[in-house]
Design a protein around this nucleic acid. Structure first.
Length: 111
DNA sequence: ACGGTGACGAGAT
DNA sequence: TATCTCGCCACCG
């Protein structure tokens, strides 16, 4: 469990219900603009007990981009729809509409 | 060590 | 618009 992974979990847990963001944006917020793939890796290897809204993270195109057999696309689609987010039959979300913009005050980083 | 892989992303075609 | 290509970087065998 790397420090970077812990930061990912901490930040994702701050995404409010009904909003989504992208892997790359999370990487940028954590100060590593080229670590989008590592954000995906962090969520792929997510500890079970941590209660993280992983389903609110999608790719920059707005598509559900999940390959974990334990959490199929269909499940992520249902979880998003349950909080009022429209998901197309091709697993696409309107990023313009549901994009999360965190307040800078809520980001205590600086490692 | 080292090449292949991938919950990514941006730019080219 | 839909693909394709390439850069990226931690992880794995």
């Amino acid at each position: 469990m790397s420090p970077f992974h812990l930061k990912v979990y901490d930040l994702v847990s701050k995404i409010p219900k009904g909003k989504v963001t992208s892997y790359g944006f999370i990487a940028i917020l954590l100060g590593k603009p080229r670590a989008a793939r590592q954000v995906g890796w962090a969520l792929f290897n997510m500890p079970e007990g941590l209660d993280i809204p992983w389903w609110r993270v999608i790719n920059s195109k707005g598509f559900i981009s999940i390959k974990n057999p334990n959490a199929p696309k269909q499940l992520q689609k249902e979880l998003l729809e349950k909080e009022g987010i429209a998901v197309s039959d091709k697993y696409m979300v309107d990023l313009k509409r549901y994009n999360w913009k965190p307040k800078s005050s809520s980001l205590h980083l600086c490692p």
